[in-house]
């Protein structure tokens, strides 16, 4: 078992290194000049510009800059922001909590919506409810998340006045962003739950329970769902990485604190170290979640364990 985990974690390392290379090269090839972003329009002599280039290490070769970035990243030193002159890791540390809360809340929304709608449409398979769920899922998945967010603001903030349209911190500001982000992921969960409930409904033990005279509702609630939900848990786990990335848009719509909003602002201000740091953190979360889900499979399903061990 330990071998399986170690193997999977080690396989993640080259991927992560590749990600840092792609990220670093992409950001260094850009035409904009970071020095002008640092100066933000202030007049400067060539000496000052030279001093700034040196201070931020921009005078060195790209491989040298990459090596420094990489070695520093290991010690959680992600450089200094051009605009605030604050350490990037500190800035991310202050904001990442808000984003993770949003992602977890959204995952909950996605799981609950998916399980309820998915099992309802599986039980009434091909009926009116099933059709209704399909149509709403189609509309939902076809709507860009920023548009869903704006709709929720219009309805729940301005018309009904239930939740604030913007802000962060309190629980009430979390509701609308979490729904926006969660709905975007709910379609996949709904479909998955529907399929796995249908599958479990056809198993022999369900027939046995019916024969025993158990009421249908009880069979579904106590026996079918419990078996059908296991694969769902892993998928919701897998979605977490994507949800962290989706926060970029949702946080901007709701002007909510977090690394997503930070990223958009940093891109606008050509603040490379911040862009680099935030994208790296999101990619690391994404990779780590994927590895964790892979490993959790082998706990849930022994067949996967042997396959991975041989693998």
């Amino acid at each position: 078992m330990g071998f399986v985990i170690a193997r999977r974690v080690l396989a993640g390392i080259p991927t992560l290194l590749g990600v840092t290379v792609i990220l670093f090269i992409t950001l260094r090839l850009l035409p904009g000049d970071p020095i002008s972003a640092i100066l933000a329009g202030a007049p400067a002599t060539p000496e000052v510009v030279e001093a700034l280039r040196e201070q931020f290490g921009l005078d060195r070769s790209i491989p040298a800059q990459y090596w420094e970035f990489l070695t520093n990243a290991f010690t959680l030193n992600l450089g200094t922001s051009y605009s605030t002159r604050q350490p990037v890791s500190e800035m991310i540390g202050q904001q990442v909590g808000q984003t993770l809360i949003l992602a977890f809340a959204a995952a909950t929304v996605s799981a609950v919506t998916g399980i309820v709608l998915g099992s309802l449409s599986a039980i009434k398979r091909n009926g009116v409810v099933d059709g209704f769920v399909r149509v709403t899922s189609l509309i939902n998945t076809s709507m860009p998340s920023f548009w869903v967010g704006l709709l929720l603001i219009m309805f729940f903030s301005f018309t009904l006045g239930w939740f604030p349209a913007t802000g962060s911190g309190s629980l009430s500001t979390l509701v609308l962003p979490a729904i926006t982000l969660g709905l975007a992921a709910a379609g996949t969960v709904t479909r998955l739950v529907r399929n796995s409930v249908i599958e479990v409904l056809g198993e022999n033990f369900v027939t046995a329970l019916h024969a025993k005279g158990l009421r249908s509702r009880l069979i579904v609630m106590k026996h079918v769902l419990r078996n059908a939900v296991i694969p769902t848990v892993t998928v919701v786990g897998l979605q977490l990485g994507g949800l962290v990335a989706g926060s970029v848009i949702v946080e901007t719509v709701f002007t909510r604190q977090g690394i997503g909003q930070m990223l958009v602002q940093a891109i606008g201000g050509q603040d490379y170290p911040v862009v680099q740091g935030v994208v790296l953190v999101i990619a690391v979360i994404y990779i780590v979640v994927n590895i964790a889900v892979d490993i959790s499979y082998s706990f849930i399903d022994p067949r996967v364990r042997t396959a991975l061990g041989k693998g």
Binding site: T15, G18, V19, L263, I282, A283
Partner: peptide
């Protein structure tokens, strides 16, 4: 395959976002 895996580590919107930011 490795290269594709790495690109896939960036969720779609994020990848487009960095490239758009980098290219202008």
């Amino acid at each position: 395959g490795r290269f594709i895996d790495m690109l896939m580590c960036f969720p779609g919107v994020l990848l487009a976002l960095i490239i758009a930011a980098a290219l202008g």
